[in-house]
């Protein structure tokens, strides 16, 4: 009964809230019209790496805003997987279920995509997934810093995968790993050409692997900043870019997960190639 009442009451409340927000937006647009009309958009400022302490010089070991948010990612992972699973209950509570779900999600991905013999590399893949996931989602907090928006970070991640997978392929299969580039199902005359293409595509892997992640994350954040700049410039019509920001933000939430997922599943695919190089 109470629920029904709440549901009936929810419609008008939402309407009232909507109009209230609209009124505030319009009023603020009128009252606080920009001091410098014109576009003052700096979408890339959010990606700047600044030292947290000291006089602004950036050395090798300087603690930066990026360091801070990566440490926060570590804390988030510890909270989710270590603190969350500390109950060790046979019947899990909510936080333990979340930890188990994350574990099961990645474990099943590794098992399904890369095969049973890839399961021993599961901790490494889990590390990649959890880091990217938390970096992406923490980056969605306004005024935060997104570590995965930097090509240096994603390139290192991709190179770790690339080098590991290549070395593993040669260790496991010896020269047989080169069979990955020799398409034995194609006509003999075509095989050398295909081998060149395969070789190029193999070396392009880390590039696409890293730029896909950094590009997606960076683009979304930059778009939000651009809309925010419009909102500041448009005065009373600023609610339009704000609505757009809300929509893009929803998309970004999706992208944050999907890009972590894509990066991880591609890692599994590459791992499968290294373990079973035959076409």
């Amino acid at each position: 009964m109470a629920e029904q009442g709440a549901k009936q009451g929810a419609g008008p409340i939402i309407k009232i809230a909507f109009f209230a927000v609209l009124a505030v937006v319009l009023l603020s647009g009128v009252l606080f019209s920009p001091a410098h009309p014109g576009l003052a958009i700096h979408p890339m400022d959010q990606f700047e790496i600044k030292p947290l302490f000291g006089d602004g010089k950036l050395g090798m070991f300087t603690v930066t805003n990026q360091t801070l948010w990566m440490v926060l990612a570590i804390i988030g992972i510890v909270l989710m997987l270590v603190v969350g699973s500390s109950g060790r209950a046979i019947v899990p509570n909510r936080s333990q279920s979340v930890a188990e779900m994350a574990y099961g999600f990645v474990y099943k991905m590794v098992e399904d995509v890369a095969g049973n013999d890839a399961v021993k590399y599961f901790p490494g893949i889990m590390t990649l997934f959890m880091f990217i996931l938390f970096a992406n989602f923490l980056g969605l907090i306004p005024t935060s810093f997104t570590a995965t928006s930097h090509i240096a970070v994603t390139a290192v991640l991709a190179m770790i995968v690339f080098v590991f997978v290549t070395v593993l392929g040669f260790v496991k299969n010896g020269a047989g790993f080169l069979g990955l580039f020799w398409v034995s199902s194609a006509p003999l005359a075509l095989r050398p050409i295909l081998a060149v293409i395969e070789l190029i595509s193999y070396f392009v892997r880390p590039v696409s692997h890293s730029i896909r992640l950094a590009g997606n994350v960076m683009a979304g954040h930059a778009v939000i900043k651009v809309f925010a700049g419009f909102a500041a410039a448009l005065g009373m019509f600023s609610f339009l870019p704000i609505l757009a920001i809300s929509a893009v933000y929803a998309l970004e939430v999706l992208v944050a997960f999907i890009q972590a997922y894509v990066f991880t599943i591609l890692t599994c695919v590459y791992l499968k190639d290294a373990l079973h190089p035959s076409h």
Partner: peptide, 30 residues
């Protein structure tokens, strides 16, 4: 250089937390 250094530190920390504590525990529970 700075980014790569801190990234590697972060990854190593996460890897050790996962392999030493989180994953064995969850695996045991499961």
């Amino acid at each position: 250089g700075n980014q790569i250094f801190w990234l590697v530190v972060t990854l190593v920390v996460i890897y050790f937390v996962l392999t030493k504590i989180a994953l064995p525990r969850i695996e045991a529970v499961l």
